[in-house]
Design a protein around this nucleic acid. Structure first.
Lengths: 340, 340
DNA sequence: CTGCGGAACTTAAGCGCTTTAGTGGGAAGG
DNA sequence: CCTTCCCACTAAAGCGCTTAAGTTCCGCAG
């Protein structure tokens, strides 16, 4: 097992009969070499399958060729939602063609997440980061600009000045399309089984539901930790009441499926006696019986958009205009109907 | 936004009144510094929140502090199965304490995967890789040793000499526990809706099923691309026959849920008229109605074990003994029963 | 008292790249 | 014919670390 000698910029330079500097210029598309020479160099590089060492690049303070993604969620519940994997897969698809890698790390608190960003910055380990689950008064949103770390936030909104650019999910509109639909069906008592209250989208959705009181719709919000177990418990207590809600909306598809099961166990017929819907879609949501009415978002596309946006920003840190991420749609399936 | 000057090994050396080399020795636990000095250096480092730049380390050929994970599956179906996310989450949990990051990249062919490994090696970008879905005659298994790239294979078996170490999932036993269970219930006609035939586990499971003919069990295998759509189609044609199988086993939970739905649509009662089971468990598998009998594997633990094993191997490349990864168990739920 | 071995450090080279400050030569301008 | 300028390119200095090859110095055997 001889130590495979790697080809370096010097080798390419020698082969092309130029200096390593010239190769660097050619590679990075900067002036200093003639078009003809550039082509020759690039050809030789390709022919010898040479790619610049990302370590060396990162060391001199140029691009690391990596973007970072710190996920702050309990590790064991990550797999339950398809959201992450879809998001990651989408981001990857956008990164792959640019030969950019994604570094993922699980953290267990916002503080740890911030520390991770600092570490990444000081070692020049990543060129930018994707941030999810923005909170009200989010420390991360202050740290990132301070570190001059390109970032894109996927979430409800941001856009105070000096905050990282964000892909803005119009959670208000999303909430409207679902809750309004239920109201229009005739539901006058709607329960919303939400995730942790500190997430911005939870607050937004809650506000929309409560705004429906103007239309004689009684909305009730239950905060949970987003676990299926919590969803089951909540559902059980909701259905044990003398006056049940006629529709229950869950924050994500797994919770909704858990809720659905409870309803079935308790002999409550869906959608005849109870409508169920979810703010997240997934393959299984359309596969269970009855299939679930959901807000369908192109999570894959969202990940791709976020990654693309991030790359743009790494290239031109000035441009900070927010973006709207895809248009979520209401997918009506079998689990919702007019109340009796 | 002044350019935040980063603290380097030289700063720490100066503060400790030693040379950078000494700091390096202290940091990496090698001889050359007294225990007393080592402590002092380490204290100062911590106090100034210094961590060595992984780029610089990687450049000199030492550890990159990153392990790689190239996933060769269609991007859009990744999210459907919880398997990946769980695996990744588990790996992360094992890596986090060692401050090792994981780099993930999606590839679309084995060739691309191999190319990725080569690139990683030549840029010293990762210290080792996790490989999944071993195939018969797998080119990856030959390339990795050639690259001297530490690797652990998660899969059915490997262990020809000169192949990377593997965490061995006893798919034979797994298949036995499920198929035997069904046979014991009295099923004499079992269909197995499998994934792509080139995966080793597919073959192993198939063999086990066919071995059951000795017990008068007629086994039938249908290869698919693992998509829920294929599962639905297969299920429909299976149930349209004059003589239906009395039990259908799916390669993963999403497929099983898709199959379940088809049965329900066609008015076939599960488990009274038909038993359904899956080789993969997930949260939702226990949540659908009827809940699914599954092989339950601690995927999270598997990821953690794989990552840990990989780290060991990076430290001591000689030790190559295979490992057995967790003990999968049969989780009997509502979807299986004795045939009429 | 000499010599020698080893522990505790220091020196300095070098990993593969980027980048700033040149250098040389040809074309344009006087 | 000489100057000036620009273009295409070279030279060389690092980036932050590791490591092989010293250098000191101290204790101890002879």
């Amino acid at each position: 097992m001889s130590k495979a000698k790697r080809v370096t910029i010097t080798d390419i330079a020698r082969l092309a009969g130029v200096s390593p500097g010239a190769v660097s210029f050619a590679l990075n598309g900067r002036p200093g070499v003639s078009e003809q020479t550039r082509r020759r160099i690039l050809d030789i590089a390709e022919q010898h399958q040479w790619e610049p060492s990302s370590a060396a690049r990162a060391l001199v303070g140029a691009r690391a060729g990596v973007i970072g993604f710190a996920v702050n969620r309990p590790a064991d519940t990550l797999g339950a939602e398809a959201f992450f994997t879809d998001l990651i897969a989408g981001a990857q698809s956008a990164l792959a063609e640019h030969r950019i890698a994604m570094q993922m790390v699980l953290v267990s608190s916002v503080e740890e997440e911030v520390a991770t960003y600092r570490r990444w910055r000081s070692a020049n380990q990543v060129d930018g980061v994707i941030v999810i689950d923005p909170r009200d008064d989010d420390p991360r949103l202050a740290v990132l600009p301070e570190l001059a770390m390109p970032a894109v936030v996927i979430g409800s909104r941001s856009s105070e000045d000096g905050q990282p650019a964000s892909i803005w999910l119009d959670d208000g509109q999303v909430a409207h399309s679902l809750f309004d639909y239920l109201a229009a069906l005739g539901h006058r008592s709607i329960a919303y089984v939400a995730g942790p209250a500190e997430f911005q989208h939870t607050r937004l959705r809650t506000e929309v539901l409560q705004g429906l009181s103007a239309r004689d719709v009684a909305g009730e919000v239950v905060s949970t930790d987003s676990s299926p177990a919590a969803a089951s418990d909540t559902m059980r207590s909701l259905l044990s009441r003398p006056r049940r809600p006629s529709a229950v909306v869950f924050d994500n598809d797994v919770m909704a499926i858990a809720g659905l099961r409870v309803a079935q166990e308790m002999g409550v017929s869906v959608p005849a006696d109870l409508s169920i819907a979810s703010f997240d879609d997934s393959v299984v949501a359309g596969l269970v019986h009855p299939s679930l009415t959901c807000i369908t978002r192109d999570t894959f596309g969202l990940g791709a958009a976020a990654a693309g946006f991030l790359l743009e920003q790494i290239d031109a840190p000035e441009v900070l205009a927010d973006r709207v991420g895809g248009l979520p749609q209401l997918t009506v399936r079998e689990s919702t109907a007019a109340p009796r």
